[in-house]
Amino acid sequence: MPGKPANDKPTYDEANRLMELSAILFYAFTVLTVGSAAYMVFSKNIVHAAFALIFSLSGVAALYVLLYADFVAATQILVYVGGILILILFGIMLTTLDFTENLKTVTVNMLPASLLSGAVAVLLLYVFFAAEWTTIVPADRDGTMYDLGMMLMNEYLLPFQIAGVLLLVAIIGALLMSTRHKNEP
């Protein structure tokens, strides 16, 4: 959760070695996340793409751990890696085989698309390097569960509840789109 800007400078000296280790881990997991995401996008095989996504999302979970967000990391693994991706894989495997085999990913408008994404990449890199980010050094803590629970029931009660309604509506929408009644034209 973003909070107020931290005014006091962090004490680096005692945490220095730990920081170095976590920096190495951070870059390792970043490579994992971005690399498998790239593989997913460029892979022509839909099953390979789904597996690549598993690694990508697990990498994100690891990044959460590095941010001391243990609960979010666990949820990421449970919901995305354990739930949604397994569902995607089942979905792919249970649909008829020739459908998935003949499924082709086609790339159109190669040149304008590459130019646009190149421009966006430059823009985002510029923003990343040029901006003076307000940084908050995460405090070492044992667990975030208690604080998270208190926040969800206090300051963030409304978004929490609204997210619930959003999921309900999304489920109804998905049902509506995917099912067919007998008496429909």
């Binding site: 963030y156 409304l158 978004p159 609204i162 997210a163 309604v165 959003l166 509506v169 999304a170 109804i172 929408g173 509506l176 789109m177």
Partner: peptide
């Protein structure tokens, strides 16, 4: 709140897509 703004935005969008 930017968080709620985005949630509200998505709520409207998802319903209108369907």
């Amino acid at each position: 709140n930017l968080l709620l703004i985005y949630l509200a935005f998505e709520m409207t969008s998802i319903c209108s897509y369907v």
